[in-house]
Simulated scan of single mutants.
Amino acid sequence: MNMITVQRPLEGEPLLPHPAYRTCRTLSRVAAFLSATGLSRDSVEMGCPSKEGFYADQEAGVVVTATSCGRPLFFAECEALAQFLQMDLVLMRFDPLLGASFDVLMAGSQNWLCDFVAWRRNGGDIWLVPKQASGPFFSLTKEGLDAYEAAPYSNGSERYAGIMRAIERPSFDGGF
Rank of each mutant, 00 (worst) to 15 (best):
L81V: 09
K51M: 11
G135H: 14
N111Y: 13
A76D: 15
S101L: 02
C78H: 10
V62M: 09
R120M: 10
V90W: 15
L98A: 03
D42P: 02
W119F: 05
S139Y: 11
F94N: 02
W127N: 06
F84S: 01
F84Q: 12
R41I: 11
F94K: 07
P72Y: 12
L145R: 00
T67H: 07
A100C: 05
G124F: 15
V90S: 07
D125C: 08
D57A: 09
R71Y: 07
V62G: 00
Q110C: 04
F74A: 06
C48A: 05
W127L: 06
E45Y: 07
F94Y: 15
M46R: 14
A107G: 11
P130G: 04
A76H: 14
A80S: 06
L98E: 11
W112K: 00
I126H: 01
E52V: 10
R120A: 01
V44N: 06
A100Y: 14
L128M: 03
D88V: 09
E143D: 15
T65A: 04
V64D: 00
Q110D: 10
L73D: 03
D57K: 07
L98W: 12
M92G: 02
R121I: 12
L113H: 13
E52F: 01
D95P: 08
P96V: 10
Q83E: 11
Q132N: 05
F137R: 14
R120N: 04
P49L: 02
C78N: 02
L73C: 05
G99W: 07
C69K: 13
C114V: 08
M106G: 00
F54Y: 15
T141F: 14
C78G: 07
F75A: 04
G53C: 00
V117W: 12
R120K: 03
S68H: 10
M46H: 08
F116D: 06
D115C: 07
D103E: 03
F74I: 06
P96Y: 15
C114F: 04
L105T: 03
L97F: 08
G53S: 06
N111E: 15
S43E: 14
V104K: 08
L145S: 02
E45H: 11
V104P: 11
R71M: 02
V117H: 08
V117F: 11
C78V: 04
Q86E: 13
F102E: 05
E45R: 06
G108L: 01
E79D: 13
W112A: 01
T141C: 12
A76V: 15
C69A: 14
P136G: 11
G53Q: 01
W119M: 00
T141D: 08
T67I: 12
R93E: 13
E143Q: 15
V63S: 09
A82E: 11
P96M: 06
Q83N: 11
E59D: 14
V104L: 06
E45T: 05
I126E: 01
F102Q: 01
K131L: 13
S134E: 15
R120W: 06
Q132F: 14
G123F: 12
G108F: 08
K51G: 00
A100M: 09
K131P: 04
P49C: 04
L98H: 06
V117A: 09
M92S: 00
W127G: 01
F74Q: 07
C78K: 01
S50F: 14
M87R: 13
G70L: 05
K142G: 13
F74E: 08
G124I: 13
L89D: 07
G53H: 14
S68M: 03
C69E: 15
T65N: 05
G99Q: 09
W112I: 02
A80H: 01
